[in-house]
């Protein structure tokens, strides 16, 4: 029967035996556990055990091997390292964690994080007893999502998996007005602005932090050393993604317009306050209008926002941006008059 056991069944048996044996297990004891107690040669069964032990270690288990009596090996689970310490969370803190989990786990909002997030929450709940659950669980108040543009999702998924496992990735990248280049990157974080994801990571060839727009990655994102499954890098503990790539809504790079001032009329002033109050200076103007000051903005990204309520705003500064916007508006009117077909 043992030979027909599936690997995860053997591994559960092995884990159960290690958990139960507080003093450790010798091979003689392990060889009685289903999965290792069949009629195959001992060496073959030991190899099977070594493979399974490796799998348990990949799940985070720390198993020490000690030689006793000069010849026998004793395998012991490090209970301090392997078992969850008491978390001492208050019921409302567990509820909050539960709500966060549900916010991401419903409707696939957690994307590639889902399995790990679900098992983490389960471990938190396992230590909580039934009072860890709300008596009546309402549907998630918020449904949060890491998903952005569908065109990016395959790259997003591959990068997130690599980031979780701390694996270096390789991909072909097409910068604007340039040919695709192969890049090798240690993913440090993902930053989103107005709907698209950007990878911030250590470019291994340039030995510097670089930013990559996911939608400009061509082909597949591959892990750097297929078959090697250990972590390949660490993120510096003081690393801050936003120092390298701004989440400012309309961008603030070297080609962006600086010191942008926009007047919004009273009809839409509250929208501007909702989105930007406390983050950028907003000045009250007579009649309920407001003036928004942005440190920087790319015209394309700014216009995508402003054109949702055309006629309710005026670019005050800089004059070059105002001219460009007026040119765009006139161009749009001309293109619309011509139509297509």
């Amino acid at each position: 029967m043992s030979e027909t056991l599936r690997p995860f069944e053997r591994q559960i048996n092995l884990l159960g035996a290690l958990l139960k044996a507080r003093q450790g297990l010798t091979w003689a004891e392990i060889s009685r556990v289903a999965g290792y107690n069949d009629a195959r040669p001992e060496r073959s069964r030991q190899k099977r055990f070594e493979r399974d032990l490796h799998e348990l270690k990949r799940e985070g288990l720390v198993v020490s091997r000690e030689v006793i009596d000069g010849a026998r090996s004793l395998y012991t689970l490090d209970r301090t390292a392997c078992l969850m310490p008491p978390l001492n969370l208050r019921p409302e803190q567990r509820h909050l964690l539960f709500r966060i989990g549900m916010a991401y786990l419903s409707d696939h909002g957690a994307g590639p994080l889902a399995d790990h997030l679900r098992s983490a929450l389960l471990k938190v709940q396992a230590g909580a007893g039934r009072e860890g659950l709300p008596a009546v669980v309402p549907p998630a108040l918020m449904r949060r999502s890491l998903q952005r543009r569908p065109g990016e999702s395959a790259h997003f998924e591959a990068i997130v998996m690599a980031m979780l496992a701390r694996r270096i990735v390789r991909f072909d990248y097409s910068p604007p007005r340039d040919r695709a280049q192969r890049r090798t990157v240690a993913p440090y974080g993902l930053v989103t602005r107005r709907g698209g994801w950007y990878l911030v990571g250590l470019d291994e060839n340039r030995r510097a932090v670089r930013v990559f727009r996911l939608s400009r990655i061509r082909g597949e994102v591959a892990v750097d050393i297929p078959g090697y499954d250990g972590p390949q890098y660490e993120i510096p503990s003081d690393f801050d993604e936003e120092r390298h790539f701004t989440t400012a809504p309309f961008g603030a790079g070297e080609n962006a317009f600086a010191d942008v001032r926009i007047r919004f009329d009273a009809d839409v002033a509250f929208i501007v306050r909702n989105e930007f109050e406390g983050q950028y200076p907003i000045t009250e103007l007579p009649g309920g209008a407001v003036e928004l000051q942005l440190p920087g903005a790319y015209p394309g990204e700014l216009l995508r926002y402003l054109c949702e309520f055309a006629g309710h705003w005026k670019i005050l500064e800089p004059a070059q941006l105002r001219s460009l916007v007026l040119k765009r508006l006139r161009g749009a009117a001309r293109a619309a008059r011509k139509g297509g077909a």
Binding site: C82, M84, L97, H116, L117, S119, A120, L121, A165
Partner: peptide, 13 residues
């Protein structure tokens, strides 16, 4: 007694 978080679970959380 639950097993400790794996690095991936800690990161996901």
């Amino acid at each position: 007694r639950p097993l400790a978080f794996t690095p991936e679970e800690t990161l996901a959380l």
